[in-house]
Simulated scan of single mutants.
Amino acid sequence: MDDWLVPDLNRAACTRCGLCVDYCPTKAVEMVDGAPVIVRPGDCAYCGQCEEMCPANAIALSYEIRPPATPRPKD
């Protein structure tokens, strides 16, 4: 099984409004049986649009992605 970096969906808090589906730029999220599911985890850009748009705060990006550190020049 592949380990993908995807947002955490709290199904208990989710109101099933579908905004996460509407705002996902890569279409990685779809409604399945009336609830959002990340059906294409490899397509998730981990951009945070779903988290930002969720009125119930049922989506969380648990990991912070940072650019690699720039090496300091040697003196």
Rank of each mutant, 00 (worst) to 15 (best):
75 D>A: 15
75 D>N: 14
67 P>I: 09
59 I>H: 10
68 P>N: 06
9 L>H: 01
50 C>H: 04
61 L>Q: 05
49 Q>I: 09
45 A>I: 00
57 N>G: 13
11 R>T: 09
37 V>A: 05
10 N>R: 04
43 D>R: 02
69 A>F: 11
19 L>P: 06
38 I>G: 04
51 E>G: 10
10 N>V: 00
34 G>T: 09
59 I>W: 08
15 T>E: 04
69 A>Y: 14
56 A>S: 09
13 A>W: 02
73 P>S: 15
67 P>E: 15
6 V>M: 02
40 R>E: 05
71 P>C: 14
72 R>L: 02
34 G>F: 02
61 L>R: 07
6 V>S: 05
1 M>V: 05
70 T>E: 14
53 M>T: 11
24 C>K: 09
31 M>I: 14
59 I>R: 12
70 T>Y: 13
49 Q>G: 09
61 L>T: 05
66 R>V: 15
63 Y>D: 04
44 C>L: 05
48 G>N: 10
47 C>W: 03
44 C>Q: 06
13 A>N: 03
37 V>K: 07
10 N>W: 06
65 I>W: 04
4 W>H: 15
69 A>D: 12
4 W>D: 01
63 Y>I: 03
16 R>Y: 04
18 G>R: 08
27 K>G: 06
17 C>I: 03
68 P>I: 14
16 R>T: 11
57 N>M: 02
39 V>Q: 00
23 Y>T: 04
